[in-house]
């Protein structure tokens, strides 16, 4: 039983999916952890990436499919940013509005079908299989996904170290100070959300090619799942200013892989696939509330200890 849970196959699949979904977590690392904006357009943006990549790959251009998906993601991020920086829409509302609108847009991209198939078309992974499997065997898919994540992580780390990247980080930390440094926070938010949108859509584009299909419902709950990965990573590898940027970004990938592993194990225990969203929600809720719970437990412990000490003392005096 245990051997089958931790079989190589399960680990391999978890790592592959973990790497692909790590890009969404990386997107949230920029919008949520760095800019301090809860971008709820993530779900729609992810399917947009799936849909666009599918359509382009169907025409026989699986490589072109990824930049196309990213451009679509940039547009989605730009609209979300435009609503909140120029039109005074609250950031959460902006995300919800764009997410709702994207549903129709995504259906339209998919030719008003609720799913698209890539079974007959070449994908990045079928091409990669031909090229890499003589050397890597069944690990070719992981190699492709890992390569994308490694490049994306490196670019994000490099980008956040530039002056523009610093301005984006400062916007989430102290927008007033950004303004005082002659930078327009509206501009930094726009750039940040465009970058995050492109990463989300790239993830969608990769997943569509990996699974050889796009479905209008695959993105539902993506925000929660990505947040879970992000939080697992931050809990394990440190957060805030204390941990270096490389370590934090690496943590995001680790978190995403671990999350996929948890899901794989759950599925092995015959948890129905439909229950996974609830499992995700519980993981996120527990992960986010963990620090508070830990604090409360520590507080209760100290209070009990103090009470017991006092009782012991008064007991002695009574004797």
């Amino acid at each position: 039983m245990l051997a089958s849970i931790f079989s190589l196959n399960v680990i391999q699949t978890a790592l592959e999916l973990g790497c692909i979904y790590a890009l969404v977590a990386l997107a949230l690392f920029i919008s949520y952890s760095t800019l301090n904006i809860a971008d709820l357009s993530t779900d729609g943006c992810f399917i947009l990436g799936c849909a666009v990549a599918c359509r382009v790959a169907q025409t026989g251009h699986p490589l072109l499919a990824l930049p196309a998906a990213m451009v679509a993601g940039v547009l989605s991020g730009f609209i979300t940013a435009f609503l909140q920086t120029r039109l005074g829409v609250e950031s959460i509302m902006a995300g919800i509005i764009v997410n709702t609108g994207l549903y129709t847009v995504n259906l339209a991209v998919m030719g008003f079908a609720s799913n698209l198939s890539l079974l007959k078309a070449d994908t990045l992974f079928t091409l990669g299989k031909q090229l890499l499997s003589p050397v890597l065997g069944s690990w070719y898919a992981l190699a492709i996904a890992a390569a994308f994540v490694a490049v994306a992580c490196a670019l994000v780390v490099l980008f956040l170290g530039t002056r523009l990247g610093l301005s984006i980080r400062a916007t989430g930390d102290n927008a007033e100070m950004v303004r005082a440094s002659s930078i327009n926070p509206a501009f930094t938010i726009t750039v940040g959300l465009c970058v995050s949108g492109s990463l989300t859509a790239l993830s969608g584009g990769l997943l569509a090619q990996y699974q050889k299909s796009a479905d209008i419902n695959t993105g539902t709950g993506m925000v929660t799942i990505a947040l879970a990965s992000l939080i697992i990573g931050e809990t394990l590898l440190g957060r805030g200013g204390r941990a270096g940027m490389v370590r934090r970004v690496f943590g995001v990938v680790v978190g995403s892989c671990l999350y996929r592993f948890v899901v794989a194990v759950a599925l092995r225990f015959n948890v129905p696939a439909a229950a996974m969203k609830l499992v995700s929600a519980i993981i996120v809720a527990v992960a986010i509330s963990a620090p508070t719970i830990r604090q409360r437990v520590a507080f209760e412990k100290r209070r009990r200890a103090a009470k017991a000490a006092r009782a012991a003392k008064t007991g002695k005096e009574a004797v």
């Binding site: 002056r163 610093l166 301005s167 980080r169 400062a170 930390d173 102290n174 100070m177 950004v178 440094s181 930078i183 805030g240 200013g241």
Partner: peptide, 13 residues
Amino acid sequence: TAPHMTIEENLAL
């Protein structure tokens, strides 16, 4: 100042 960024990064901004 931006509290979660280093002294150096604040000065760079």
